[in-house]
Amino acid sequence: MQRVNMIMAESPGLITICLLGYLLSAECTVFLDHENANKILNRPKRYNSGKLEEFVQGNLERECMEEKCSFEEAREVFENTERTTEFWKQYVDGDQCESNPCLNGGSCKDDINSYECWCPFGFEGKNCELDVTCNIKNGRCEQFCKNSADNKVVCSCTEGYRLAENQKSCEPAVPFPCGRVSVSQTSKLTRAETVFPDVDYVNSTEAETILDNITQSTQSFNDFTRVVGGEDAKPGQFPWQVVLNGKVDAFCGGSIVNEKWIVTAAHCVETGVKITVVAGEHNIEETEHTEQKRNVIRIIPHHNYNAAINKYNHDIALLELDEPLVLNSYVTPICIADKEYTNIFLKFGSGYVSGWGRVFHKGRSALVLQYLRVPLVDRATCLRSTKFTIYNNMFCAGFHEGGRDSCQGDSGGPHVTEVEGTSFLTGIISWGEECAMKGKYGIYTKVSRYVNWIKEKTKLT
C-alpha cells in the first residue's frame, strides 16, 4: 500500500490518463441519441435557420407576430419608411378606419389613436360632414345658397324668414311668412316636400332668348283662358290664391305678392273693366268669414305684352289694390325667389296649380277651390304637342294621358313649387288646347323671366 501511494504521488498524470480511459469505455446513459432527441424537440425550422439574422431580410411573422416588435424591426421587413409607417399605425392600436367614419364618399386613412378623412370636392370637416359648395344638395341650405369668396357655403332665406341657429334652416321672422300653410287642420295635408338634388348652379339658368321682337298675326285659340281631375282644397291650404270678379264672377285667378299687390295673367284683364279681388276665398257660393274683398285701382301688364300681336306672350300683369290686405292664416303671400332659384325650383319637376275653373272641358265651374299636382314636361315634348308657338318664356306641365289639367277660369292662378315646406311661385296658368285632352298640356308663363320686374313694381313704400 505504501508503494502504491508513492507511485500516485510521483505520477499524477498517469492516474488522470487511467481515469479518462475508464470513462470513455463506459456506456453513456444520461444523453439520448440524435434521433430520439429530435422526437422530443420537434420544432419547425425557421426561415433563416442556421444563418445569422443580421444578414437576412426581415420576416413579418418572425419579427412582429411571434413577439412584439419595434418600429426598427418592422422597418427591416418593409425596407421602406412609408410602408412601415402605414403598417405601424394599425399594428400599434388597430384600424381606426374600420367603422368607416368618413361621410359623403370620403376616404379614410388610419393613424395612431386617430384617423384622417380625405374629402371629395365640396366637403370638409373631420368626417367630411361639412358642405362647402352650393353645387351639392344646395349646400344643405333649406332655401338659398351662395358661395363666399373663400368658396364656403353661405345660406340665406327669402323675405319674412331668418336663418336658424344651425345656419342652414329657415324659420319665420314674421307672423305670416310667405308660402307657408298655417291653418292647423290643413298642415297635415301639406304636399310632399321637395329635397334639393345635386345641381350645376353655374349652368342652372337656361341660355334662352326671349323672342321679344317676333311679330306674329293673332292666333285663334280655343278655350285658351284655361282644375280638371283635381281635388277639393281645404280652407287655408292655398292662402296665396285669390279669385278675380268682373263682368262675371271667378273669371280668373291670381296670387298675393304682398298686402297691396296681386300677380295674374295679362290676358285676364281689360282696361276700363272694374275688377274686384277676393282673398281668403274657399267656396265661392258661401260666406265663410275668411274672405277679404278689395278693388283694383291700377293694372300693370308687362311692358312687352301686346294682345294685338299675341294674347299669351309675356302673359303676366300686376294688380294694385285700393287697401292693403290683412295677412292671416287664410290670406298669405306666395314666396318669389330670384331668377336663378325660381328656375331651379321649376326644374324640380312638379308643381301645384289651383283655381275655381271648370271641372271638365266646357263644363261647370268649381264651387270649392280645386288643386292638382302636375309634372313638368320637357321642352321637346311640349313643342311636338301643339302647332302653336311655345315661346321661351312659357313652359308645359300636365299629363300625356289627359284627364287632369287646369281649365277655363283658372287662368292667372299660381303654379307653385314647394321647397322644404315653403311654396314659391314658378308659373302662372296661361293657356292650353281644350282641357285635359290626351297628348295636350297646360301652358304656363315662366315666372323666372319676370321676377325682377315683379319685385321692382310691387315694392311697398
Results as ranks from 00 to 15, higher is better:
residue 375 P to F: 10
residue 258 N to V: 02
residue 323 E to Q: 13
residue 115 Y to I: 01
residue 88 W to D: 15
residue 318 L to M: 03
residue 16 T to G: 10
residue 435 C to N: 04
residue 62 R to S: 04
residue 46 R to A: 15
residue 76 E to W: 09
residue 138 N to L: 03
residue 136 I to D: 08
residue 59 N to V: 04
residue 456 E to V: 09
residue 269 V to D: 02
residue 349 G to N: 06
residue 29 T to E: 13
residue 332 T to M: 07
residue 166 N to F: 02
residue 339 K to G: 08
residue 199 V to A: 05
residue 431 W to N: 13
residue 164 A to D: 06
residue 368 V to G: 11
residue 409 G to P: 10
residue 241 Q to I: 11
residue 100 N to V: 04
residue 211 L to D: 11
residue 320 E to G: 03
residue 175 P to A: 11
residue 172 P to G: 07
residue 11 S to P: 10
residue 48 N to E: 15
residue 455 K to S: 06
residue 429 I to K: 13
residue 144 F to K: 02
residue 20 L to S: 03
residue 18 C to N: 03
residue 204 S to W: 10
residue 396 C to W: 01
residue 87 F to G: 15
residue 196 F to Y: 10
residue 265 A to P: 03
residue 387 K to H: 12
residue 425 L to E: 00
residue 55 F to N: 15
residue 82 E to G: 15
residue 454 I to Y: 01
residue 223 D to T: 13
residue 391 Y to E: 12
residue 314 H to F: 07
residue 371 Y to V: 15
residue 417 T to S: 09
residue 245 N to M: 06
residue 451 V to R: 03
residue 195 V to T: 07
residue 249 D to T: 13
residue 98 E to T: 09
residue 167 Q to N: 08
residue 6 M to V: 11
residue 197 P to D: 08
residue 176 F to Q: 06
residue 249 D to R: 09
residue 67 E to H: 04
residue 230 G to R: 10
residue 80 N to K: 13
residue 77 V to F: 05
residue 214 I to D: 07
residue 203 N to A: 12
residue 334 I to A: 03
residue 349 G to R: 06
residue 57 Q to P: 15
residue 353 V to P: 01
residue 234 K to L: 09
residue 114 S to A: 11
residue 336 I to K: 00
residue 121 F to R: 10
residue 451 V to H: 04
residue 104 N to C: 00
residue 424 F to G: 00
residue 343 N to L: 04
residue 99 S to W: 04
residue 316 I to L: 07
residue 222 N to G: 13
residue 105 G to A: 04
residue 145 C to M: 02
residue 439 G to W: 04
residue 399 F to Y: 15
residue 33 D to W: 07
residue 211 L to F: 13
residue 345 F to L: 07
residue 380 A to K: 14
residue 42 N to Q: 11
residue 290 T to A: 05
residue 453 W to K: 00
residue 101 P to I: 03
residue 235 P to D: 04
residue 28 C to V: 02
residue 69 C to F: 03
residue 134 C to L: 02
residue 417 T to L: 01
residue 95 D to H: 08
residue 13 G to D: 04
residue 420 E to N: 09
residue 157 C to L: 01
residue 90 Q to Y: 11
residue 382 C to T: 02
residue 249 D to V: 07
residue 421 G to A: 07
residue 270 E to P: 13
residue 401 E to V: 08
residue 60 L to G: 15
residue 82 E to L: 05
residue 51 K to T: 07
residue 47 Y to E: 06
residue 393 N to T: 14
residue 23 L to M: 11
residue 287 T to L: 13
residue 72 E to V: 15
residue 245 N to T: 10
residue 135 N to E: 15
residue 302 H to L: 01
residue 310 N to I: 02
residue 355 G to Y: 15
residue 184 S to M: 05
residue 260 K to E: 03
residue 413 G to W: 10
residue 434 E to A: 14
residue 228 V to I: 13
residue 365 S to A: 14
residue 270 E to L: 13
residue 389 T to D: 09
residue 227 V to K: 10
residue 186 T to V: 11
residue 272 G to D: 09
residue 190 T to L: 07
residue 431 W to V: 14
residue 396 C to F: 02
residue 246 G to H: 08
residue 103 L to I: 10
residue 151 N to S: 08
residue 59 N to P: 08
residue 110 D to V: 05
residue 5 N to P: 09
residue 115 Y to E: 02
residue 259 E to Q: 07
residue 216 Q to A: 14
residue 29 T to Y: 12
residue 319 L to M: 15
residue 92 V to E: 15
residue 204 S to N: 07
residue 126 K to V: 08
residue 291 E to D: 04
residue 235 P to W: 07
residue 12 P to N: 11
residue 439 G to R: 10
residue 167 Q to I: 05
residue 231 E to I: 12
residue 451 V to E: 03
residue 370 Q to N: 10
residue 284 I to F: 12
residue 84 T to P: 15
residue 44 P to N: 10
residue 144 F to C: 00
residue 39 K to D: 14
residue 150 D to M: 09
residue 109 K to R: 09
residue 447 V to A: 09
residue 87 F to R: 15
residue 278 V to N: 04
residue 388 F to G: 07
residue 144 F to H: 02
residue 439 G to A: 06
residue 372 L to R: 14
residue 444 Y to F: 15
residue 41 L to R: 14
residue 309 I to R: 09
residue 252 C to H: 01
residue 2 Q to K: 08
residue 304 N to P: 02
residue 321 L to W: 01
residue 409 G to K: 13
residue 231 E to P: 10
residue 207 A to T: 12
residue 398 G to P: 03
residue 289 H to A: 06
residue 251 F to G: 05
residue 361 H to N: 15
residue 204 S to T: 08
residue 124 E to N: 05
residue 53 E to M: 07
residue 181 V to W: 08
residue 8 M to E: 09
residue 253 G to N: 02
residue 417 T to E: 00
residue 204 S to G: 12
residue 141 C to T: 00
residue 45 K to V: 15
residue 31 F to W: 13
residue 197 P to Q: 09
residue 46 R to I: 11
residue 317 A to Q: 01
residue 259 E to W: 03
residue 440 K to C: 09
residue 60 L to W: 06
residue 328 N to V: 00
residue 275 I to K: 01
residue 407 C to W: 14
residue 385 S to W: 12
residue 312 Y to V: 08
residue 452 N to H: 14
residue 100 N to C: 04
residue 258 N to C: 01
residue 109 K to C: 02
residue 120 P to L: 08
residue 417 T to H: 02
residue 258 N to T: 05
residue 119 C to D: 00
residue 18 C to D: 02
residue 398 G to E: 06
residue 84 T to L: 05
residue 394 M to N: 14
residue 385 S to R: 13
residue 264 T to P: 01
residue 135 N to G: 09
residue 308 A to E: 13
residue 89 K to D: 15
residue 400 H to K: 13
residue 208 E to Q: 07
residue 264 T to H: 02
residue 285 E to N: 07
residue 145 C to S: 02
residue 3 R to F: 10
residue 147 N to S: 08
residue 346 L to N: 03
residue 55 F to G: 10
